[in-house]
């Protein structure tokens, strides 16, 4: 992208004045951490308009301040009560997840015991039963791994500290290709694939976190993907955006912005 052309289109002024549509707004906000000249332009535009606003200075009623703070006091009380109610509402969801996983575990475990008893009683069916037992145990392990995955995903989705960042295609901005779940508190970053084209031989997708205006390697996206699995990426305690570029297999030190595939701001 030629950033000078982008700036001279007048997009920054329209953004500051609140005239941009949602797509234009998102585009500017994701480009912002990548281009210092865009940040400077935004700052200067804001400054000029703020000085213009300042030139209209006028004093409100002297008693307005106490009225405002009285209203804030009463809202603060209501806010505290609301938070208490919210924390009560979150618990049942989590309990349900635990209950569901335990009962699934108990069910598959009970199945195993049943087979074990039968195997003891019927020696002549030993070979047949042995085989079915093995299959069942294998399925059980698979199920347990899958269950664990689902539990992790469920916990992430239910966890309020996780922010959901949609990564939209650069070519077609309305197309959501992947989602990042990121918790600044826990620092954890998870990648969830939505619709990702298979990379050409010799290339691989690489995730970048934009931290203080600079792209930082956030890990490689595995070549083989299953669309429902959350992949844990590198930890970050702060980031303003996430972006994915196509790099050589194994990744690069610095992102190739020509091959920017998708991005999403926080």
């Amino acid at each position: 992208m030629n950033i000078q052309d982008y700036i001279s289109s007048g997009i920054v002024e329209s953004y500051v004045l609140g005239l941009c549509n949602e797509a234009e707004k998102q585009e500017l906000e994701t480009l912002l951490p990548l281009y210092p000249e865009l940040q400077a332009e935004l700052k200067d535009t804001e400054k000029a308009l703020n000085m213009y606003a300042n030139s209209f200075e006028k004093s409100p009623n002297p008693d307005l301040k106490s009225k405002i703070f009285a209203e804030i006091d009463s809202l603060e009380q209501a806010d505290i009560q609301q938070k208490e109610t919210n924390s009560l509402q979150i618990k049942p969801k989590f309990n349900f997840a635990i209950a569901a996983s335990i009962s699934l575990f108990v069910l598959s475990f009970a199945g195993n015991i049943y087979l074990y008893n039968k195997w003891n009683k019927a020696n002549q069916e030993l070979i047949v039963l042995n085989e079915s037992n093995r299959v069942l145990a294998e399925n059980q392990t698979k199920n347990l791994v899958r269950l664990e995955e689902i539990q992790t995903q469920l916990a992430i989705v239910n966890d309020n500290s996780f922010k959901k960042v949609d990564l939209n295609s650069i070519q077609n901005k309305t197309e959501k290709l992947a989602t990042i779940y990121w918790s600044p508190n826990k620092k954890e970053v998870y990648f969830s694939c939505n619709k990702l084209a298979k990379p050409e031989d010799g290339s691989q997708y690489q995730l970048w976190a934009i931290v203080d205006g600079k792209p930082v390697d956030a890990g490689m996206i595995p070549l083989e993907l299953s669309d429902s699995i959350f992949i844990k990426m590198k930890d970050f305690s702060s980031a303003q955006a996430f972006a994915i570029t196509l790099e050589k297999t194994g990744g690069s030190e610095n992102p190739n912005l020509e091959k920017l595939q998708m991005m999403g701001g926080i």
Binding site: S8, S9, G10, I11, V12, E13, S14, L17, L19, D44, T45, K47, A48, L49, M51, Y52
Partner: peptide, 16 residues
């Protein structure tokens, strides 16, 4: 419209 607005703001930037 966007470029017209830009011209106006550029003018404002100059004088501020």
């Amino acid at each position: 419209v966007k470029t017209r607005i830009r011209a106006a703001i550029q003018n404002l930037r100059q004088i501020t």
